[in-house]
C-alpha cells in the first residue's frame, strides 16, 4: 500500500502548492482516482477502507493544525462519538448508511461549535489541554451512558444498503463507498485550503495580530475552522463504523487523539497529502506489528522520534521540498 500512497505524494500539491490549471494538474487527480479504483484488487479492501477512514480523520485534524496552527488533543471525541451515533441509528433505528452518516456528522458539527467556542479562547498548550479535557468528558459519557454499551461498545452494526438500493455487505462495495466519502472529504478540504477563507486561516496561523489589524475577526475564522475540522473528523468516524460494524471505546480514547497527531506529523503537517500518507504508514504499521502485541507502541514511538529528528516536515513535506530544490537547481544554470 505504501507504494500506492507514495505515488500519490506527487499529486496536486506535491509540487509545491502552485495551482497549475489544465491537463498537468488534472493528470494527478486522474492518477489518484485510478489508484483508488484499482487498489482493492491488489490489497485487502477492508484494510484499504480502514486507511481511508483514518486518512480522512487525519485530513480533518490537519485542517486545524496545518492551516490554523491549533493543536487539538481531543479530536477522538468527534471521531468516536460520531462512530457511536451512526452505529446507534443504524442498528436501533434501521436507517440507511448515508442517513446515519449525515446524522452523526451533523451532530459533530454541533459538538464542534460548542467545544470550539470554549477552546479557541486559548492558544498553544492551553488549547491542547482544553480540547483534551473536553474529549475526556466525552470518553466518560461513552463509558457510562446506555446507548454506547460501555465496555462492550455497539457490536454487530449492519452495513445496510446505500440509498436502500445497493448492499454494502461485500468488502468491495463497502470499500468503494468509503473511497467515495473519502474523495468528497478530500475535495472539500482541498477547496477550503485554496479558497480566500483558507488564505485567511494561513495568515492567522502565521501572525494573528496582523490578520486582526487587517480587519479580520480571527476568532470567528478559528471557530469555523474548528467546526469544519470536527465535522470532518465525525464523518471519518461515522464511516469507519460501517467498515468494522463496531463502535467501541478505542475510538474515543486520548490515545486515538494522539494517533491522529502522529499520522499528521509523520506524513507532513500543512500539506494536503501528508495526512493520507501518514495514515497509510501508521495503519500499515499496526497491521504488520499486530502479532508482536504491545511492542507496537515502542516501535511507533521510535518512528515518531526518528521522524521529528530526521525529517521534521514529514514524508510529504520532505519530498516536496526536495522536488522544489531540484527544480530550482535545474532552472538556475539555464538562467545564469
Amino acid at each position: 500500500m505504501s507504494t500506492n500512497e507514495m505515488s500519490k505524494t506527487l499529486g496536486p500539491d506535491g509540487g509545491g502548492g502552485a495551482l497549475v490549471v489544465g491537463w498537468k494538474a488534472n493528470r494527478w487527480w486522474i492518477a489518484g482516482l485510478i489508484v483508488l479504483a484499482v487498489a482493492p484488487f491488489l490489497v485487502y479492501p477492508i484494510f484499504l477502507a480502514k486507511i481511508l477512514c483514518f486518512a480522512l480523520f487525519a485530513i480533518a485534524f490537519n485542517l486545524l493544525l496545518g492551516y490554523v496552527g491549533l493543536l487539538s488533543f481531543g479530536h477522538a471525541a468527534f471521531f468516536g462519538m460520531a462512530a457511536y451515533i451512526s452505529g446507534h441509528v443504524m442498528k436501533e433505528w434501521g436507517v440507511t448508511p448515508e442517513v446515519a452518516i449525515l446524522i452523526a456528522t451533523a451532530s459533530m458539527a454541533v459538538l464542534g461549535v460548542v467545544f470550539g467556542m470554549i477552546a479557541i479562547r486559548r492558544q498553544g498548550i492551553y488549547f491542547a489541554m482544553v480540547t483534551l479535557a473536553l474529549s475526556q468528558m466525552v470518553y466518560f459519557l461513552a463509558l457510562q451512558s446506555e446507548f454506547t454499551h460501555g465496555e462492550d461498545g455497539i457490536q454487530g452494526i449492519p452495513r445496510g444498503a446505500f440509498l436502500g438500493l445497493v448492499s454494502l455487505e461485500s468488502s468491495l462495495s463497502i470499500y468503494y463507498f468509503v473511497a467515495g466519502v473519502f474523495v468528497l472529504g478530500f475535495l472539500f478540504v482541498y477547496r477550503v485550503i485554496h479558497s480566500p477563507f483558507g488564505q485567511v486561516l494561513k495568515s492567522v496561523r502565521e501572525n494573528e495580530a496582523r490578520a486582526t489589524s487587517l480587519g479580520y475577526d480571527t476568532d470567528r475564522y478559528k471557530l469555523l475552522a474548528f467546526t469544519l475540522s470536527a465535522t470532518l473528523a465525525g464523518l471519518a468516524g461515522a464511516t469507519k463504523v460501517l467498515v468494522f460494524q463496531l463502535a467501541s471505546l478505542t475510538d474515543v480514547t486520548w490515545q486515538m487523539s494522539g494517533e491522529v497527531v502522529l499520522m499528521t506529523l509523520l506524513g507532513g503537517v500543512g500539506t494536503i497529502l501528508g495526512p493520507v500518507v501518514g495514515a497509510g504508514i501508521v495503519v500499515s504499521m499496526h497491521n504488520l506489528l499486530a502479532e508482536i502485541g504491545s511492542v507496537t507502541t515502542i516501535v511507533q514511538g521510535l518512528i515518531f522520534i526518528l521522524c521529528v529528528l530526521v525529517f521534521r516536515r514529514g514524508v510529504v513535506g520532505e519530498v516536496s521540498a526536495w522536488l522544489r530544490r531540484r527544480r530550482s537547481t535545474k532552472k538556475h544554470p539555464r538562467a545564469g
Binding site: Q199, K202, S203, E206, N207, L214
Partner: peptide
C-alpha cells in the same frame, strides 16, 4: 505572510 505569495498577500 510567508505562506502566501505576493498576489495572495495583496488580495488577503
Amino acid at each position: 505572510f510567508s505562506s502566501l505569495n505576493v498576489r495572495e498577500n495583496l488580495t488577503l
